[in-house]
Amino acid sequence: MSMLNSDNLTFEYIRRDEEGNVESITKALDGVSLEIKKGDFVAILGHNGSGKSTFAKHINAILMPTEGTLYVDGMDTREEEHLWDIRQRAGMVFQNPDNQIIATVVEEDVGFGPENLGVPTEEIWKRVEESLKAVGMYEYRTHSPNKLSGGQKQRVAIAGIMAMKPQCIVLDEPTAMLDPNGRREVIRTVRELNRREKVTVLLITHYMEEVIHADKVIVMDDGKIVMQGTPREIFSQVEKLKSYRMDVPQVTELSYELKRAGMPLPDGILSVEEFVEACGRLRQSGGFGE
């Protein structure tokens, strides 16, 4: 079952001068073809301006493809009659937590989506309660969003999407404006939702440590998909990632550097535990006794 299916998706920005003549055409997306299965946790990496946010906005039918097609749960995003269905099924969380909270009380904000969908009042209350509990913000339901931390605000925004009962959540750099604790909070919440509620997650980010648990990582550059695979496959290619203005977790870089200096370590070490284990094995085997 595929949640998202894009075929040769292309999007062009046309800039015009004052007389309306075409000044330049920028291909923000250039022939993106990919499939995301239901229930997957997929991360898209890419530097600022690589086209990853433009791709996200297509999923929600905020932008329409110049060429190619994108199907969300089998619906073509270009067909107007599917617009609200698509937006209900593929919810979207944005970067700036302040600019996506509409109401001045947490629970009212979470209820905003269901209200727009015409959900009956009692059902709205049920959904608001469930979603706030799912992101661990139920005890803040009567608070003002202004008094919450960045991480808490993003969790409220996620609850607002969950209350629409989507099948997929697209998060467009949800942690870019948060501190490390807020980032961990948000990522933990998203992983929980993926695991427990089986929601498909598409996480767009440039923080490497957030993608190591993903089922699949896609790297974008210049509007194209340039790498895809499991986190381990991706992070095995340190030099290639760096050429796309990306980075790797410190321990991955350390292992890579050690390997280059002659230590026979495996590729794509993602965590401290894996690193310690690999070093331990190395010491015991291969005649490297103390």
């Binding site: 609200w84 919810g91 944005f94 600019n99 969908l117």
Partner: peptide, 21 residues
């Protein structure tokens, strides 16, 4: 940003809207 976030949450004016409160 806000307009985009509201549209993404299916806001399309007052028609067909229910109320939480």
């Amino acid at each position: 940003d806000l307009a985009m976030a509201m549209e993404a949450r299916c806001y399309h004016g007052g028609a067909g809207r229910t109320k939480m409160k």
